[in-house]
Design a protein around this nucleic acid. Sequence first.
DNA 1: GTCGATGCAAAGGCTTTGCACAGCC
DNA 2: GGCTGTGCAAAGCCTTTGCATCGAC
Lengths: 159, 159
Amino acid sequence: MAASSSPRSSEPLASTELRTSLHGRGQRLTPQRQRVLGLFKRIGEGSHLSAEEVHQRLLGAEQRVSLATVYRSLRLLSSMELLRELELPEGGRRFELASDTHRDHHHLVCVGCGRTEEFDSAAVLAAGEQAAGGHGFRLIECVLNVRALCPRCAAEPAS
Amino acid sequence: MAASSSPRSSEPLASTELRTSLHGRGQRLTPQRQRVLGLFKRIGEGSHLSAEEVHQRLLGAEQRVSLATVYRSLRLLSSMELLRELELPEGGRRFELASDTHRDHHHLVCVGCGRTEEFDSAAVLAAGEQAAGGHGFRLIECVLNVRALCPRCAAEPAS
DNA sequence: GTCGATGCAAAGGCTTTGCACAGCC
DNA sequence: GGCTGTGCAAAGCCTTTGCATCGAC
């Protein structure tokens, strides 16, 4: 699965970008922060992880990252807008990679089993911008949470 | 401010409806449950309260309701779909009155000061239904959270 | 009279914080 | 070498739960 061609330390690539952002805020580039952000980059844009999950996944790595540091890094990276915090229905705080190209980005969640699908919608972004503008607000991002029943759960009589 | 023309116990009106719903689930109508739901009805549809706020507001009343019971009632009333639980950005769990007429209903939140405005949008509901249908899901409700900057906070340089 | 609901207080998650040491710049 | 970041463990929310009593039906 993974690249077996890089027996070197960890992820030298793209660190520069992160380093620059951090230095701009008077902060330092540390292996822990690289590892947290790297994890999100590795799993891709659509994945949502809780702090605990990030911690667990990083345990598998050569070096561990303490849970406290995971929380600190998540907060820092979110404030830098490299990650984004989600409020999904039925679930604790989760984080995902924030991509510049996606200021809108939506979740379809099954209230039965928790299965989550992502989707985009230009119409929703337009509606969000219209609403923001109408109140004199400047839009940062908009997130649509659709609570629904997936085919399987809709079929069941429910407990 | 309040109606001074009803020196009677509390809210006999509409209790019947609540009683029926409760009995249908094998539950009882208690003054506490009436008071919690009554509070939300009094403050109207657009208001979001946390458990703690509900508790505080009910302290002012003749009889108090314990915080544990507030939590229990909020959960019960939400499961009965009389209330609805919100996940607003930057804030803990909050509840509001669930009206049958609003299966969509959206929030514009200032990330600077937390000011929240509500709005409706047929376009958003349509987009939500399209997305749900496209995945074979059956829509229950959709909530759009727009994170934005209000005019005042946009003007400030931010700390 | 029965069985569920309440109040209190204690327990339970999840998240943050204080402090000494390690490591980035 | 200075000063920030880390790890650990303890403290801090917010929420739930156990148990005796109260009260709706």
